[in-house]
Design a protein around this nucleic acid. Structure first.
Length: 251
DNA sequence: GTAGAGGTGGTAGTTACTTCA
DNA sequence: GTTGAAGTAACTACCACCTCT
């Protein structure tokens, strides 16, 4: 049997896969018209707030559970959409991932499907999209976690090395004094622009600082927001540095 | 203005069926 | 031919929002 709708010519093998027990996926346009005609404002079979009216349940039974012979089929029907139908639905989904009632009816008519089928397809498609996105996000966070773990290890090692170096008298003899010392007024953290290791030490001492970017929660592993540095008395520097290396945490 | 009922459309979770290795 | 996994159409339950009374 051939049906023609839109630019799509479909061959339906009545004894084959296209036609399953019960509702035909590619039911003739006349039947669709009927279906559309029956689509009063109450016709949405889905989404019934858990309180499905008797009419709706009845209609549901009529449209979904009636087999070819008109009897009730115990099992629900599951019908494969044709490639053309799926392609068209995909195309529409790309444009907008939800449909208003008019669009739903029009699309159903065009595809020779029941509006309910179009509705279900869009529901499932949104669910798949969300699942995919979740997987992508999960993968991204996993990579971030790995990177941070590596960075943490590296910094821990650096701290150990610095601690060892600190114990050696040569450390003080070869150490260049910091040229500019600054302190953040919020956290009282000290940093030095001339020290090559200060940044590393800082991040090693405060490994969690950059873990959550409060100003941009979407970038949970982004760099910490810059503190506003203010110059401090150089004579404090040694004390602060000492305290930081001893593990002192500003409150 | 507001509370309650009913309709509608969304999501989450599940089931049942198809397809394929 | 059988079987298990994956994909997906269709379902239920619930929620939020809107409209009407």
């Amino acid at each position: 049997m051939f049906w023609f709708f839109g630019n799509i010519f479909i061959f339906v093998d009545l004894s084959g896969e296209r036609r399953m027990r019960g509702i035909d996926v590619n039911m003739p346009a006349a039947e669709v018209e009927e279906e559309l005609g029956a689509s009063s404002p109450n016709s949405t079979v889905s989404s019934l707030s858990g309180k499905r009216s008797e009419n709706e349940v009845e209609r549901d039974r009529d449209s979904s559970y009636e087999d070819e012979d008109g009897g009730d089929a115990a099992a629900r029907k599951k019908l494969r959409l044709s490639k053309e139908q799926a392609a068209m639905l995909e195309e529409t989904f790309k444009e907008h991932n939800t449909l208003n009632p008019k669009q739903k009816l029009a699309l159903a008519k065009e595809l020779n499907l029941r509006p309910r089928q179009v509705e279900v397809w869009f529901q499932n498609r949104r669910a798949r999209t969300k699942l995919k996105q979740t997987e992508v996000d999960c993968e991204y966070l996993k990579r971030c976690c790995e990177n941070l773990t590596d960075e943490n290890k590296r910094l821990q090692k650096e701290v150990s090395e610095l601690r060892a170096l600190k114990l050696s008298p040569q450390f003080y003899m070869n150490m260049n004094p910091p040229t500019t010392l600054t302190m953040c007024p919020q956290c009282e953290r000290v940093s030095s622009s001339s020290s090559t290791t200060s940044a590393s030490v800082s991040s090693a001492l405060y490994p969690k600082t950059g873990m959550v970017n409060e100003r941009n929660p979407n970038n949970p592993v982004g760099p910490p927001q810059p503190h506003r540095p203010v110059p401090i008395n150089p004579s404090w520097a040694k004390i602060f540095s000492q305290n930081q290396l001893e593990g002192h945490r500003p409150s």
